[in-house]
């Protein structure tokens, strides 16, 4: 399909409960005035994420579609992305084409990453409450997603987490790729992430956005060598 005839697809991955749905709802609120948006959620056990985003009233209900993943949230964004592609294409066909479709992965473990055939750009969402050692543990999303978001920094003092440690570890993993830390409940983080989304859209429309594969969880070989998989 030619690039112009479809929306930019931005993947949002990360463990359960880190704030993926809330981030998408916040971005819809932030960007909905300027951009035509759609959302595809991948729920593991319920359509709760889709209902939550619809319930926020930030998008028309028919712009949020839920894809069932039959216990295989990882498969749906990586090995067999057909259901998600069809859902995004149907949003474009019935509403658009839209500017951006956010594809939310079902909350999965640290190894989940979007196929570059599904997500033109992807962000990975962590939170302080999940433990400040998570950025150090790494994984394809943490190390190589186009954007790493560290959410719930306002909770750090209550759970004994160090935002500084998380940021330092994240930067050490990411070879200069961007990291945004903050709280979706207030502060500049949502606006910063919205700016990042706008920049991806600008690059994509200019034909300058290259979809980068975060790659397999344990790179064979050593060091920071990046593989080019066909």
């Amino acid at each position: 399909m030619p690039v112009e005839s479809r929306s930019l697809r931005i993947g949002v991955a990360g463990p359960v409960g880190t704030g993926k749905s809330s981030l998408i709802a916040a971005l819809c609120r932030e960007l909905g005035g300027q951009l035509e948006l759609g959302v595809v959620t991948n729920d593991i056990y319920t359509d709760e994420d889709a209902r939550m985003i619809r319930g926020q009233g930030v998008l028309a209900a028919d712009r949020v579609v839920a894809v069932q993943t039959g216990c295989c949230p990882h498969t749906a964004i990586r090995d067999d992305i057909t259901a998600n592609l069809l859902a995004a294409e149907e949003l474009d066909r019935s509403h658009g084409p839209l500017d951006v479709v956010f594809v939310e992965s079902g909350g999965d473990n640290l190894t989940a990453a979007f196929s570059p055939a599904l997500a033109d750009a992807q962000m990975f969402v962590l939170d302080c409450a999940g433990g400040d050692d998570v950025p150090r543990k790494g994984g394809p999303g943490i190390s190589r997603a186009d954007l790493l978001v560290i959410n719930k920094t306002d909770l750090a003092p209550y759970v004994g987490a160090s935002v500084e440690t998380m940021l330092a570890d994240a930067h050490a993993q990411r070879s200069g790729r961007p990291v945004i830390a903050g709280s979706l409940r207030g502060g500049p983080a949502v606006a910063e992430i919205g700016t990042w989304v706008g920049e991806q859209l600008r690059l994509w429309r200019a034909g300058e956005l290259e979809s980068v594969d975060p790659g397999p969880p344990a790179p064979h070989g050593s060091g920071d060598h990046v593989h080019q998989h066909a």
Binding site: V67, Q68, T69, G70, C72, T75, A76, D79, D80, I81, T82, A83, L86
Partner: peptide
């Protein structure tokens, strides 16, 4: 393993 979405149906 051929990608046709079948895994999501019972």
């Amino acid at each position: 393993r051929t990608p046709t979405g079948g895994y999501a149906h019972s």
